[in-house]
Design a binder for these strands. Structure first.
Lengths: 169, 169
DNA sequence: CTATAACCTACTAATCCGATAGGTTAATAG
DNA sequence: CTATTAACCTATCGGATTAGTAGGTTATAG
């Protein structure tokens, strides 16, 4: 907020021009992978790295991975409800893996946290939705392209398990 | 809005529960490819299909592809400024391709309209940005996974040209 | 000179993301 | 039995984008 020296009132025009400048200078970069999903994967990897079956506290993951604890809580809760994690309340409690890391594919993690893997709903396997505009999917120039992208992404995410990504370092 | 028969007042609790139900039933599906990009690709394909060098009007594309004309105008303008299209004003004017469809890769179109192709800025080639949270990209479990996804997507989008996607049908 | 179609500027509603706040419940330690 | 711990739950919020809409101005063809 800029205050005019002359009038003592808020100078909205200046404020506005600064905001517009910001807009144009710092081009927003769209995240296709939300922080939620990113944090979720990191948390799973963290738990997997520990290896043993003792529960890991949210606070520990939060500190180690620089994630807001409250936000992380909601993510881990969702992962538990989706069957990836088990939990234990009270002292010494926390979250632990239910399945082996080798059996957790990145596709399933991302589908739960993020939603569709496809870039467009009309080529999504699990979250299909027809486009409003396209009368025919076969005639759509974007459709087949996006199917190719989906399939190549699906291949990568399906090949990678939690064991693979938590093995790093 | 629901009106209580007893009090004659708005029953916000009911209203609210309906809205919550809606929220949970109709899960929002995130588009990773914006409509802007989708429309832009469709428009390019439309122009490419025409084949000849006569300018194509925004209104024609808009009607044929079911795209809001004003929105499309802004997209085609951007594509012109980015060097994909040429334009001609006045009667008989419109937009035309500057390069051959074979020479227009989908990667470049998407980068201009959408921005980064990578799912996360920290693995983007053209829009790189460091993550706030990660102290080390090598240690990040998400990083290498997203590099794999990026590369496979880049392969598909780099292999497909405007000629390829407009050849359909 | 007039119709056309590109070009430009500003604004808006709806929506989501990422997070915060403030609590309740269940399990363990002492 | 009591205090502590950590998961669990509900509500709310600011900031930012998307997908337009509105209302013009400029240049070109006939």
């Amino acid at each position: 907020m800029v205050i005019s020296a002359e009038t003592g009132l808020f100078d909205f025009s200046v404020e506005n021009s600064i905001m517009n400048a910001k807009k144009s200078i710092f081009k927003y970069i769209r995240n296709m992978l939300s922080k939620k999903t990113k944090y979720g994967i990191k948390a799973l990897a963290f738990i997997a790295k520990k290896g043993n079956k003792k529960p890991v506290q949210t606070s520990e993951i939060s500190k180690s991975e620089n994630i807001s604890q409250k936000f992380l809580e909601s993510i881990l809760l969702e992962l538990r409800k989706s069957g990836f994690l088990g939990s234990k309340k009270g002292k010494g409690g926390g979250y632990y893996l239910i399945k082996e890391p080798e059996d957790i594919r990145m596709t399933s993690v991302i589908r739960v946290l993020e939603g569709p893997i496809a870039m467009v709903p009309c080529v999504s396997l699990n979250y299909y939705e027809k486009c409003d505009d396209c009368p025919s999917e076969e005639a759509c120039s974007v459709h087949s392209l996006m199917i190719q992208v989906r399939d190549s992404t699906l291949k990568v995410l399906g090949d990678n398990t939690l064991a693979d990504i938590s093995a790093k370092k």
